[in-house]
Design a protein around this nucleic acid. Structure first.
Lengths: 139, 139
DNA sequence: CACAGTCTATTTGTACACAAACAATTTTTG
DNA sequence: CAAAAATTGTTTGTGTACAAATAGACTGTG
């Protein structure tokens, strides 16, 4: 009764994940100080698609409407993304990466791969794959 | 060359973890709307310790000095935590859970266990343990 | 003992993250 | 076709999260 009553914060999945994410973000920042992980994700996805509406980009990068707006606004302010209203649907804002946006993405993508590698560096190849499989099930 | 050039956002550890954390927070909120995960972590740790300085509590819950201040301020505002300057070291703020804070913690702790269980519910017992072992290595 | 370095807490500024409410526009459907 | 429903984007408010700067208090060493 005593023992089962104890709640060990450090053993909870949420707590451990928060710490792992903190470490990951620190690694990201050390290798890519130019952009935040979120901004890079949005830019990467937009470069992959070539074009997308703001909402669409948010959905594909798992960002809330309010969040993606902020992220896109900052990318626009830095001249990495262009936004234009869509003629055929006046609700939508069509986003396109600018040449600078594409260039920055191309420059940073290898470092982004390195971020993932460094994050997983305490694990063996097999362990890394296992982890990804398990995390995907929680996705 | 083509294939190794592709950067698949959805396969990156950071992206997947962000999504898993989002799901976890949603589960947390559905079971414990009273407090945020962070607030609960701080309260739980403080109840475990009985007492701690603000900085100490921050370190033990992996929160930045500015973050723990905000969290503690909100717990104090709700009468869950009491803060008193320490006579023997005037820099420190001694934190103690109030009776209401302790009562709330006792009330919520079983639900917090349930949050962890629901988060891990897509995994078998063995898989959950594997995941925790792997995440701890990235910690 | 003095003072340089460390520690604690606060403040400010930037950036996610999400809920809720709103306006403007499609789209659906009765 | 007209009203209802859904979609897109914006705004506001709350809550992490972290960097950097500051002030006050302690500690250690010369």
């Amino acid at each position: 009764m005593e023992d089962s009553d104890r709640y060990i914060l450090e053993s909870q999945i949420g707590f451990v994940m928060r710490r792992v994410v903190q470490r990951h973000i620190a690694i990201f920042f050390s290798l890519i100080p130019d952009l935040t992980p979120t901004q890079f994700a949005a830019l990467a996805k937009l470069c992959e698609l070539g074009q997308a509406s703001q909402n669409e980009l948010g959905r594909l990068t798992s960002m809330d409407v309010a969040t993606i707006k902020g992220v896109v606004d900052r990318l626009r302010a830095r001249g990495l993304v262009l936004a234009e209203p869509l003629a055929t649907d006046k609700r939508r804002l069509t986003l396109t990466p600018t040449p600078q946006g594409k260039a920055l993405y191309r420059k940073l993508v290898s470092r982004a791969r390195e971020v993932s590698m460094q994050t997983l560096s305490p694990l063996s190849e097999t362990e890394s794959q296992q982890l990804m499989v398990l995390l995907r099930k929680l996705d």
